[in-house]
Design a protein around this nucleic acid. Structure first.
Length: 369
RNA sequence: GGUGGGGUUCCCGAGUGGCCAAAGGGGGCAGACUGUAAAUCUGCUAGCUAUGCUUUCGGAGGUUCGAAUCCUCCCCCCACCA
């Protein structure tokens, strides 16, 4: 068993668990920082470890293009290359099918990409993606899927899902290193029957864990939650559930309430680079804005991270304003710790049976749309 | 002292008779960001009693229906020569 449930919320589907990998266990619910190009932008592995980060992401598409497989082989895999000793989950490149849609051509066996760097052509399908992830030697491999865009007609969603399911089967059949696990990805856009069928087909194939993809691509908050409500009852309870690409704190909390164990999102690091900081209640403030130019209070008065205990909003705003990299780093440190501590608080709330109350306190932060 | 070049909106800088409140940068301000083509992108940036009017292109005059653009004088800056 690669997943063990250690506590359950009496009122919701939330649970605490341990995701077991050969490079260590991961306490869930977990937020996984995104390290697309073999780095969680601006952060050192030591800093991440000290924050309590137990698993990060890497990306098949980006690492395949640069530095390329020869370098990865010579380095002895992604862990050694970037000196991260804890688990790594690699995304399959399926999201790039979505985000780089202008540069691709879909075929039955995969995607013909024009590299966003130099335009050179290459092919990425389930066979290629898994083979690359085998070289990367990530602990959790993701099946190669097509991240369906939104909006999407029913017919297009059917067509897309058929490919994703076929590719899931092929992905599952590819050889992996002994220590590697592989997760399947539920697509199906915002259509109930497609989402349910997608989940059922993946369960039939049988994966080490199950992800829900194709969310936070433009659909409403309600639609995102609805998809979880359709899919979660179909997924095996004793496997890890991963909500891909999500999200904001209130979205994470709602996901956990529905039985999600794993999340990843660029939000903490990207917003940091763009000058925004998370507050303890889940809101963000634009620290780089002129209104903070003379604000001598900490970025978040309730936070005890290195940034908040040593520097003022005025200083961070100044650094951002003049383009000093330290501003970006200080905000990245703060936002990363905010997310890690949010997850720790949630795990504690689940263990002590107070998760639903915790959740209620965060509901007010949900935007109305 | 002589010769040449130049002074433009917060800054740099384009414009050399009407399509100019004046390109483009920068700076400033606001917003966006969800399995990272993102330390990025978008919008606004003279004033007003606002489908129009007022002030603005070193200063003062002038030519013209009309001037940032042409003419005269003045002030200042830069380069080279003495």
């Amino acid at each position: 068993m690669n997943f063990e449930i250690t506590a359950k919320c009496p009122e919701t589907k939330a649970r605490c668990g341990l995701l077991k990998t050969s490079r260590g266990d991961v306490k869930t619910p977990v937020f996984m920082p995104v390290g697309t190009r073999a780095t969680v932008k601006t952060m050192t592995p030591l800093e991440l470890e000290q924050m309590g980060i137990e698993i990060i992401l890497g990306n098949t598409y980006h690492l395949f293009l640069r530095p390329g497989l020869e370098v990865m082989k010579k380095a002895g895999g992604l862990h050694k290359f970037c000196n991260w000793k804890r688990p790594i989950l690699t995304d399959s490149g399926g999201f790039q099918v979505f985000s780089l849609s202008a540069l691709r051509k879909i075929t039955p066996n995969g995607i013909e990409f024009a590299s966003h760097i130099d335009g050179s052509r290459f092919f990425l399908g389930p066979v290629e993606s898994i083979a690359i992830q085998k070289v990367l030697d990530s602990d959790i491999v993701m099946a190669f899927d097509e991240c369906t865009p939104y909006p999407c007609t029913y017919d297009n969603a059917v067509e897309s899902l058929e490919l994703t399911t076929k590719w899931a089967q092929i992905s599952r059949e590819q050889p992996l290193n002994e220590t590697q696990q592989i997760f399947g990805i539920v697509q199906g856009s915002v259509y109930r029957d497609l989402r349910i069928r997608a989940a059922e087909d993946l369960v039939k194939i049988g994966f080490d864990g199950y992800a829900i993809g194709g969310l936070s691509v433009g659909e409403s908050e309600e639609q995102m939650i609805e998809c979880l409500d359709w899919v979660m009852p179909v997924l095996p309870e004793d496997k890890a559930h991963y909500m891909m690409g999500v999200g904001y704190p209130y979205q994470i909390i709602e996901g956990i309430a529905r039985g999600i164990d794993m999340f990843d999102c660029v939000i903490p690091t990207r917003l940091a680079r763009h000058g925004n900081a998370f507050m303890s209640n889940g809101d963000t403030i634009p620290v780089k804005a002129g209104r903070y130019a003379e604000d001598m209070s900490p970025v978040d008065p309730e936070c005890d991270c290195y940034t908040c205990t040593n520097f003022t909003r005025a200083y961070v705003r100044h650094l951002m304003n003049v383009g000093e990299v330290l501003g970006v780093r200080l905000l990245s440190i703060h936002n990363m710790i905010y997310f890690e501590k949010l997850m720790a608080r949630i795990r504690e709330a689940i263990r002590t049976g107070t998760f639903n109350a915790f959740r209620a306190r965060h509901v007010s932060n949900m935007p109305k749309n």
